[in-house]
Design a protein around this nucleic acid. Structure first.
Lengths: 144, 144
DNA sequence: GTCCATGCAAAGGCTTTGCATTATA
DNA sequence: TATAATGCAAAGCCTTTGCATGGAC
């Protein structure tokens, strides 16, 4: 399991046990660029470990979020959460609230603001959620 | 029901029927500055109309969100949504992911960015969700 | 060996939906 | 009067939890 080598350091850093299931979830989050639902992570994890359980996925991502390894995004129209690694080079989206189409935007207007807040509040900020939404060109026209 | 006068115009504008229940929900959203859960809206609505049903609250806020009258905020740690009017002078928060304490921040770093995106994409943007999170001073110290 | 993580099954909690009734335009 | 909204009850779905077992340190 050579691919797990630097995972080991992450688990050490955050003082959580290095288990096979956590390695699998972390690898999935590393590999994917887009946010994933717990169910999607579960499906991908099943390919590596046929016995892995959905509750383990939830427990794992909850731990990752509490440590700041991952972030929880509740940005979907559906009532479920999405998760992705808490990286510097994350992405934001504009979502059409009519057809659900999403386009990604290249600039994060928050990153700089986080540094400002870090200096001007006593919070240690580890991440943010941002979603912009509206109507895409097609649905905008359809409304007339 | 004089207080419903300008609600009437809103319902007309968005082409939805002017019902007593929708007036009650809209008034609650107008009165409150902070985001509310469906349950909280329901509790407040019950004081005006003892028979109003939770499913009506959900249907009402879902319509409001689809029209851009209100926005849906999935910013809570709990897995439930919050709702507030889609106003210009909204507020954002930094939330402590350990104790859930929130402090409000005065500047919205997104508003200006929305205008930029409105001009540089073909989306008509009607709102955004932003939450910043981290650890407050107390929980930051506790971690060591 | 101790303590934590996992699998399984069940429960919990938020939200949506079908249908008969009621209210709006 | 035709159409849409509501109340009620039930279902749906995402997520968490209790407990016995298994695995990491």
């Amino acid at each position: 399991m050579d691919e797990f080598i630097d995972n080991k350091m992450i688990f050490k850093k955050y003082k959580i046990k290095n288990t096979e299931q956590r390695n699998i979830v972390l690898d999935i989050l590393k590999r994917e660029k887009k946010p994933l639902t717990a169910e999607e992570i579960f499906m991908k994890a099943r390919k590596k470990d046929k016995n892995i359980n959905l509750s383990t996925i939830y427990r794992t991502i909850n731990i990752f979020v509490s440590k700041g390894i991952a972030i929880k995004l509740n940005i979907e129209r559906e009532n479920k959460s999405m998760f992705q690694l808490n990286m510097i080079d994350h992405q934001h989206y504009i979502r059409c609230i009519s057809c659900n189409k999403k386009i990604s935007i290249d600039i994060c207007p928050i990153i700089g603001y986080e540094y400002f807040l870090e200096e001007n509040t006593d919070f240690h900020i580890i991440g943010h959620n941002l979603e912009l939404y509206g109507y895409c060109s097609k649905c905008k026209d359809k409304k007339q």
